[in-house]
C-alpha cells in the first residue's frame, strides 16, 4: 500500500541546529492492516507519520502510495493525494474552534465541491456512527475530550479515505476511552481501511487489533513485531 525507500527527513539542514528526525527508513505498510509506530518522544515517529501521510516531503528517499510515486509531486497534487487517500486524527484533535462538530466534520470535503445536502447527510451519519450525533450542533470548544476525539475520527473519514493516520490518538484519553478508540480502529480495519498510528501508549501497541508494531529510536527503525 505505502512503500518508503531510504527516507530521510532533516530539519534546519546545513545549520548549526540541524536535526535528523528520520534517518534512512525503508518500510512497507500493508493495506487493510493496523500498523503502529512505537518509540519514545523524539524517536521520529510523528515525523515518519507525517511523511507517510504526505504532509511533508522527505529530504531524500522515495515514497510510493499505491503505484504512485509522491515525493516529486507538486504541492497541489500532493494536497489532492492527501485529501483523497488519507484521513488524519491528531494528538490535540485540532478541531476548528467556533465551528460546530458537524461543520468540523464537513471541512475536509469543502475543497472537493459536491452537493451540500449529501455532505451534511454523510457527516451527520459519521457522527451518529461514533455516538456523537446528538452533539452535531455543539461548538467544538464545548466538546469533552472523548467527544472531540470521535468528532476528529468522523472528520478523518468524511472523504472516505483508504488510509487513516493517527498521531498519539490516546494521549488525552483515559484507559476506558483509549480501549474504546481501539475498538473503532478494529471496525475501520474490518472495513478494509489501512490504519497507521504513532503512539507510545501500551493500550495501543499491545492491543490485539494491531497487526504490526514498528519500533523507532533516533529516527531509525530498531525493531518490528511480528
Amino acid at each position: 500500500m505505502i512503500r518508503l525507500q531510504d527516507v530521510r527527513r532533516v530539519f534546519h539542514q546545513g545549520r548549526p541546529d540541524e536535526l535528523v528526525a528520520v534517518d534512512g527508513v525503508s518500510l512497507h505498510i500493508e493495506g487493510a492492516k493496523v500498523t503502529v509506530l512505537r518509540g519514545p518522544s523524539g524517536s521520529g515517529k510523528t515525523s515518519l507519520l507525517a511523511l507517510v501521510g504526505c504532509m511533508a516531503r522527505p529530504t531524500s528517499g522515495r515514497i510510493h502510495v499505491g503505484d504512485r510515486e509522491v515525493t516529486s509531486l507538486p504541492e497541489h497534487f500532493l494536497a489532492e493525494v492527501r485529501r483523497r487517500t488519507f484521513g488524519f486524527v491528531f494528538q490535540q484533535f485540532h478541531l476548528v474552534r467556533g465551528l460546530t462538530a458537524l461543520e468540523n466534520v464537513m471541512l475536509p470535503a469543502y475543497p472537493l465541491g459536491g452537493s451540500r445536502k449529501a455532505l451534511v447527510i454523510r457527516a451527520q451519519g459519521l457522527l451518529d456512527r461514533f455516538g456523537v450525533g446528538s452533539r452535531s450542533r455543539a461548538r467544538a470548544d464545548w466538546l469533552s475530550g472523548g467527544e472531540a476525539q470521535r468528532v476528529a475520527i468522523a472528520r478523518a473519514l468524511v472523504n472516505d479515505p483508504q488510509v487513516i493516520v493517527a498521531d498519539e490518538p490516546t494521549a488525552h484519553l483515559d484507559s476506558k476511552l483509549s480501549a474504546g478508540f481501539m475498538d473503532l480502529v478494529a471496525a475501520l480495519r474490518d472495513e478494509g481501511r489501512t490504519v497507521v498510528i504513532a503512539s507510545h501508549d501500551p493500550i495501543v501497541h499491545d492491543s490485539t487489533v494491531v497487526d504490526r508494531v514498528v519500533t523507532m529510536r533516533d529516527g531509525r527503525i530498531v525493531g518490528e513485531e511480528p
Binding site: E75, H76, A79, R83, F86, H94, V96, P108, Y110, P111
Partner: peptide, 16 residues
C-alpha cells in the same frame, strides 16, 4: 495560524 495549519493538514491546498 493554527486554523490555517489544521486546514492544510486535513487536505486543503495552499490556494484554497
Amino acid at each position: 495560524r493554527r486554523e490555517i495549519g489544521i486546514l492544510k493538514a486535513i487536505g486543503w491546498d495552499t490556494s484554497e
